[in-house]
Write a protein that binds this DNA or RNA. Structure first.
Lengths: 147, 147
DNA sequence: TCTGGCGTAACAATTATCGTTACGACAGCC
DNA sequence: GGCTGTCGTAACGATAATTGTTACGCCAGA
């Protein structure tokens, strides 16, 4: 599974915007966030665009443009973020239809579908337990380097 | 996340071998399994090779060659299969190190690491609950098409 | 010795992610 | 009204993983 960092970067961006706003700023720019995440501003804009479609953030254009939270960090869970940025299911079925004339080929997909549904349900439950508020709290709790 | 079908195909192969052996056959060939899964024998051999490295199946060469189970279906769980065929973690961190001078850039990875560890732990627990014996049972329980 | 299938390398096709450049659109400000 | 900074998005390349496919040596029983 080519693990991707979309959820990580999206959470990073949300935490960054949230902290920045608590410091009194109105909006954050994709360039600032990209500098923190050490990536390209377009990557941030793409991800935040998906979060906006999900109603988690808002963007302002023109002068003084940038991004702001549409909801409190405490009301956003990692499940919200996951659903916004991760399209497909965790596990895939065969890419071609198995031999329906074979007993196993005929029954394997219904069997695995049940398993996968249970697993995704559990995953969603776990993700829903973590708010971005808690993520930011953990971020700030990370030990600073010694002097 | 480009979902992959490795776990599905591996479970398919194991269920197929298990059922075939219960019908009195010694070994199953990659060609037979590939026909059931509607894919190429090399794909099956590759996956079964990883399962053999994990001690789940055995292979025989020479005349009368083929694959057989190294353990009972009831003692093999989807977690065993998952660990054998899925290398990486579910979610990835940033591909480049975030800005350590930024509070969020510094603390985001420890924070997400904790979340991801919990999630993978839960996933493994779910996978460990399902034996291949149960998978085969569900496969055989799939409704047959009406006459 | 013959033969069927494993073991594995090699390559192409496909797909997703990520980085990057480019450029139009927008809105506040001078 | 023009300037400016940032968004919004298209386009392209690099990279990597998966999957399918061909090819061929190797093995062991008949």
């Amino acid at each position: 599974m080519s693990a991707n960092s979309r959820l990580t970067i999206a959470a990073h961006a949300l935490a960054w915007i949230g902290l920045y706003q608590r410091q009194g700023h109105e909006v954050a720019t994709s360039e600032q966030i990209a500098a923190s995440a050490n990536t390209n501003p377009v990557v941030i804009r793409r991800l935040l665009g998906e979060l906006r479609r999900a109603g988690l953030v808002e963007s302002r254009r023109g002068a003084g443009a940038g991004w702001s939270l549409a909801r409190e960090l405490g009301s956003i869970t990692l499940l919200d973020v996951y659903e916004a940025v991760e399209p497909g299911p965790l596990f895939a079925m065969h890419r071609t239809t198995p031999d329906q004339g074979c007993v196993v080929g005929h029954g394997i997909q219904p069997a695995m579908r049940g398993v996968y549904q249970d697993i995704e349900e559990t995953l969603r439950h776990e993700l829903a337990r973590v708010t971005l508020e808690k993520v930011l709290r953990d971020v700030l709790a990370a030990p600073r380097q010694p002097l």
